[in-house]
Structures are given as C-alpha cells and as structure tokens.
Design a binder for these strands. Structure first.
Lengths: 223, 223
DNA sequence: CCTTACAGAACGATTGTTCTGCTTGTAAAG
DNA sequence: CTTTACAAGCAGAACAATCGTTCTGTAAGG
C-alpha cells in the first residue's frame, strides 16, 4: 500500500515546520550527501559511461535499497549531483577568498586547477559532455547551467573591469577563459606533458591580461 | 570521391602483396568503412556512453555476425574509428585548400566548425573524453594522438610564423586555439545562444591575431 | 577445396528499476 | 509519561532488458 513515493525533488528538503534536527532527517541528508559524493568520485574515476548504480552504491558503502530510496532513478541522482557540483564550484569564487584580483594569471591558474585538477571539476566535465546527447538530462539541467553561468559572470564583473569600461567585454573575456579551461580536459590526451599545459595557461593569461583591470573594490558584501 | 583509405591498424596489416582489387577485399573494406561511419554517427548522436554494438550494427544496416567478423571486439572498432577520425580531420588542413592564411579569424572559424560543427569533430570529442578514464583504450591511442598533434603543429608552422620568429610560439598559440575550440563543446550547455559562441570565437581570434603572421609561401608541396 | 565473409543464436554478466519485508523514528492519542 | 499507529529509512531479492563476446552454421570468392 505504498503510495507514490515521489521523494520530492532535489531542492525541497525544506523540512517541515520543525527547526530541530531530527535523527531521521539528519541521517537522510547524510546518506544523500554520501551518495552524491560517491557519484562524483565515480564520474571522475570511471567516466560517465561506466558510472553505474552498482558502482556508486559500492563506492558509498550503501545498500542498494538505501540508494533507490533516496534517489528513485539514476537520473535523479545525477541531477542532484550536478546541483551539488555547481554549488560547490561557484561558492569559492563568490566570497573571493581565493581570487587575488591583482594577478590575473594566478587567478587563471586557480581556475584551471578548479576545473581540471579536482575530482569535482572533472566530474562536471563528464556530465556536461553527457548532456550533449542525453536530451532528457539536458532538459532538466539546462536552466540550472545557464543560471549558474550568469551568476558567475556577475561575480566576475564584480572583481574585474574592462579598460574600455564595457562590462560585457569582461564577461566575454572570462567566458573565453572558462571555455579554454574546459578544453584542457579534452586536449590533455594530445599534450601529456603537464609543463606544456601550464605554459599554455600562463600564455593564455598573458593574452587576456591587457583587457582586464582590477575593479576598485568598494563594499563587496557577499550576500 | 570518398575512397577513405583505412589501414587496418594494429591488427593484421591486411596483405598488401595483392595489387588487384578482389571482390572479396573490396567488400571487406566497404563493410569496415560502413561500420566506422556508423560508429561516428552513433558517437555523435548518442554519445560514448550510449553507443552500443547493437546500435552501431543497426545504424550500419549490418548483421551482428558481420560486425564481429571485421571487429572482434568493441575496442577494435573504436580504435579504427579514432584512426579514421584523426586522418580525415588532419587531411583538410594539410593541403590547406581551406585555410585562407591571410584572415586568421576566418581560419579559426573553420577550425571551430571542424571541431564542434561536424559529426566527426563531435565524435572525436566523445572518445577523447572517454580516454580520460578508459585506461585500456587510452594506452592504445595515446601515441596516435600525440603524433597527430605533432603533425598538426608542423603543418601550422608551415602556414604561420611568429613576429618574434619563434616557431614554438606559433605552436603554442595554435595549441591554445585548439584547446579553446574543444572547450566550446563543454561550454555550449552554459551558453546556448549560437551568436554568443560565434562572437567569442571572433574575439578569441582577435586576441591571438597579433601573434601570428602569414609565412612567406614557398613551395609547399604536400607530401 | 579452403579460407574468408557473413548470418544469427546463445552466452553469462551487468544494466536500471520494481517490489517485498523489516526496522525505527516520530508525533498524536491516551 | 506511556502507548500506539504510521510513514520513513533501509536491506536485498527479483525483474526484464541490454550489454559485449563467443559460438555454430552457411554461402561464396580465390
């Protein structure tokens, strides 16, 4: 007599009116978190093609029943994982503890490391490639991705300005930078020497540096 | 016109003693070609994850027995497909009927179209992403990819020169350009507007144009 | 006559999903 | 503060479908 156990979408949680942390809810969130982290690890290790539910539940040390309880389908799990990836990959650049704002090349190196040098960055690349052909998945995450991109643009405009004063140019330059960084993952098989990759990053930084200026930092209260 | 010459690669070198085209050999090459084309089409349409043997043989309108006869394993088929992709993606840039050599931005647009706007370019991106985690596949194609990259570098140096006279700089600039182009595939979900993509390509061309000059064209006999 | 080219069934392994049963937190009822 | 009822959390079997590979059989070019 189980009703439709549509375990509410990824964003819900929201809890009930209860503010206290119930044992029940806490464990649930823990399990979800563990499963998402396992999915990221599998995407990084095995790639999207070979990331199966069996592997994920093995990586997470969670029973299959628990997995299917929290994520009734693989698609739900992937989407929740994408949400997690977007959030954690956006957060560090918003408070800008990491961005030096003065050395653009250093910022680019940080960007490169974030996108290709971490499990989360590589995992995102895997799902991005998958969305190209998986229309069902694409339909459900397209909005999130474009929103994320816009938010990132606005954050960058808060840090950098164009000598011409055109903010759109800053957005375009950084969009080019992000595109270049993403391309590194696909270029790596051609250029196995890490030093050559690093040199290319530095050179790219030199190419775009003349078109970026540090913005006069006023009250940048992060919301 | 499209008599694609596909060398049988790692496996048997397929007896070159016979100069005459037997009916037998011709049909075999035709079947191989058809299967490779079908694989490319499937990689483009379904992505690497969902490109199964069943789908390939369906796309090629070939029996499963025929497929397994020509390619005893999926890996063999994928490798033969990669060989075909590398060859056809290199050829047009070698004789340089397409490269204008004067308008760098136009050349970049052609490069972008070649890498992200064609089924072959997208199919290559799919397998490139797969090689990141598939170590068995990676081990078998790494050499081919680096060699291909080197060959492309040399071809580019034949067309362009650096104002500084340093050929290595030309190689680096074009390596950056190729990386950027590859990144477009992964950036597309974030930036669905084609016009914005095109503008970014043009802008990128403007960024690197100052560092490239047309090389005085002497006898460029393509080997 | 024999090897190659092909057709197609059969194979075990693995895919993602569905279902049944058991435990347990939690909140309402007493 | 109990008692009780019920849904959430979870374990694991069962499921049909599909995966890639192997095998047997047949037709035909050399």
């Amino acid at each position: 007599m189980t009703t439709a156990r549509l375990h509410s979408s990824a964003t819900s949680q929201s809890s009930t009116k209860n503010g206290a942390n119930g044992v029940r809810q806490r464990r649930s969130l823990e399990a979800r978190h563990k499963l998402i982290e396992a999915t990221i690890a599998c995407l990084d290790k095995f790639g999207y093609a070979d990331t199966s539910i069996a592997r994920i539940q093995d990586q997470a040390s969670v029973s299959r029943g628990a997995l299917t309880h929290h994520f009734p389908s693989k698609e739900e799990l992937v989407i929740a994982t994408i949400d997690s990836l977007l959030e954690t990959l956006l957060r560090p650049s918003l408070p800008s503890k990491k961005l030096s704002q003065t050395d653009i090349v250093a910022d680019l190196r940080w960007l490169a490391r974030n996108m290709t040098g971490t499990a989360r960055g590589r995992a995102l690349s895997e799902v991005l490639m998958a969305t190209r052909t998986d229309k069902k998945l694409s339909a459900r995450v397209n909005r999130r991705l474009t929103d994320w991109n816009t938010k990132l643009d606005e954050a960058v405009v808060g840090f950098y300005a164009s000598p011409t004063g055109d903010d759109d140019d800053v957005r375009q330059i950084w969009m080019i930078a992000r595109t270049f960084m993403r391309g590194l993952i696909l270029q790596q098989p051609f250029t196995p020497d890490p030093a050559q990759i690093e040199q290319a990053i530095n050179r790219f930084g030199a190419l775009i540096a003349p078109y970026l200026e540090t913005r006069k930092r006023e009250g940048v209260t992060d919301a």
